[in-house]
Amino acid sequence: MAPINLAFSEPGWLLSAPLALLPLLRRDADTVNYSWLALVPPDPLSTALGWLLRIVAAAVMLAITLGLAGLHRPQVPVERVGKGAEIVLLLDRSRSMDEPLLPKGSQPALYSGRRGESADLESKGRMARRLLSEFSANRPDDLLALVLFSASPIPVMSFTQKQDMIQGAITAGGVGKGLSETDMGRGLLAAADFFDQRAYAGSRLILLVSDGGAQLEPGMRERLTTVLKRNRIGLYWIYIRSAGARGIRAEAGDSEAMESAPERSLHRFFEGLGIPYRAYEAEDPEALKRAISDVSRLENLPIQYQEMLPRFDFATRCYAVAAVGCLLLFAAALMRVRRWP
């Protein structure tokens, strides 16, 4: 067992600790004069009791001091095993995510507005964030990290289970419009980076949410292949299909130009990586929801994680000790003879 670390939140109070020695000094109070102590027969029990009461009084004062100083055990990490995964959310922060997710078959031309605020349609990004925030709220054992990517990857937070933080980071994605460019390759690298030099504790996952693909340079492909394989990372791609865009899977009758569309080529690249890979095409809000619930259903392997055992406050214990001590002292006081019969 690890040594118990103790700390004080208000160590200034400890300066009053020496006052706890006061009861040990034999000062006059509650005493009755007796002409000659040599006449009193020696009595070890009485002597012990006398010391005990003084020590109890000192202990009471010391306990109060410790309580006031805020004696506590700081939060300590403990290993826990839960059901979930280590998930890096890789969110596309590009401006196209601000556009509304149109039901299949709608024409983008029908939609005229700037950021979906005029329409009763949710933007792609907003919907993705809403679902992700529900997703994380329902999976408390998951360790989530978050990387945004546009022209450069922006790692926002590393693995955490703190819902406050996760929700704060997801909320933040909804403020202000998106950025102009996307560099998915560096985004993926940054996401995979989180697993680098990290002990394997449970299934590892990158959850890529984007509305477009990217042509990756051969050099980048190589780097990605290495890092994803080395770290045994699974990849979930939730592809939010833009209105008018073709899907990531080949369909009959696709032209060659369509075959070489960025999302298609990226899909093929991911398939060829030899890592656990799933792609979801979300064409409407329902599909997006399905995709996310799929992830949450599939990724439920045991995961080892560190939980912060919350700080334990000993102050009440200290006061309890002091109160019991006072009780003893008071009982002794009630027993005290201050007048001869």
Partner: peptide, 10 residues
């Protein structure tokens, strides 16, 4: 006294 706690002082 028959019983009690006494703090005697000389």
């Amino acid at each position: 006294p028959g019983f009690g706690l006494i703090e005697l002082a000389d």
